Simulated assay, not measured.
Amino acid sequence: MSKAVKPAPASRLGRWWLKWRFHINILLLLVPLGFMPKYFADASLFRGDSGLGERDIGTVQVGPWSVQLAEMRAEAPTPDGPAGYMKSFNAALCETCIEPVKAAYLRIGKPRSLRAAGVIFFGTPYRLSATLPIPERTQADAELWITLEGWDGSMHQASIPLRQASPATVAWLAQRGGK
């Protein structure tokens, strides 16, 4: 019996492929490893292992209650299609205010009423999230208002300067100028 001998590929590409296919496969395994540190950092951030967000704003006293506030990402607002530019914030209610607080809201500029309180925080009381629209005409001296609504119908508000809450957003607004 004779063994069938496989002829060498005739084309230049075929010879190249036979010579380098092992090395290319190793490269396909190693390239994703370069992205693993960012993946694990993002996973840790979203799980809450590395705190509420990339930049901790601090504790804000809202009436009798307090809220721990943080920027999800310490970067400029990101475009979100027709919705405009958005910025994500996270919050955690204090231990004593978990039961009496019904809802938490966030807004740029003072709310006129509870109906215009801004975007609502969602999630567990230990890690609330809100994605806030940033109007392009926002002034650099604007304030970020937090509204807490209690189950008893009470409403408490507090504000912090946008410069303190998100320096990256203020820098982004200054960069955009008067657009």
Rank of each mutant, 00 (worst) to 15 (best):
R115C: 00
T124C: 01
E136M: 14
L128G: 09
L148C: 04
E143V: 05
L132K: 07
P111Y: 05
R137A: 14
I120G: 00
P135C: 02
Q139G: 11
G123K: 09
F122K: 15
L114P: 07
L132C: 00
R127G: 10
P125Q: 11
F121K: 03
K110I: 06
S129R: 14
G109Y: 08
S113T: 10
R112N: 13
R112H: 10
I120M: 12
W145F: 13
R137P: 09
T147V: 00
A117H: 09
T138S: 15
R112W: 01
D141V: 02
T124S: 15
T138Q: 11
Q139N: 13
S129W: 05
G109S: 10
R127W: 12
L128N: 05
S129I: 00
I134V: 12
R127P: 08
A130Y: 07
F122L: 14
L132D: 05
S129V: 04
P125N: 11
R112Q: 15
A140I: 11
R127V: 07
G109P: 03
T131K: 10
L144K: 04
D141M: 11
P135T: 06
S113I: 03
E149W: 01
E136D: 08
P135K: 07
S113W: 07
L144D: 01
A142T: 10
A130C: 00
I134W: 02
E136K: 14
L132Y: 01
Y126C: 02
L114G: 03
G118D: 04
A140E: 15
W145D: 06
L144S: 01
Y126A: 14
L132I: 01
I146K: 00
I146E: 05
R115Y: 03
A140S: 13
A116W: 00
W145E: 05
S113K: 01
P111D: 00
R137I: 05
L128D: 01
K110P: 03
L128K: 13
E143G: 13
G118A: 09
G123C: 12
I120T: 09
Y126E: 15
E143F: 12
E149T: 10
T131F: 00
A140Q: 12
A117S: 10
L114D: 05
F122P: 06
K110S: 07
P125H: 14
F121N: 05
S113F: 00
R112L: 12
L128R: 14
L128A: 08
R137N: 15
A130E: 02
I146D: 08
T124K: 14
L114T: 06
I146M: 13
Y126K: 15
W145Q: 05
P133T: 03
A116G: 01
A116T: 13
P133L: 05
T131Y: 01
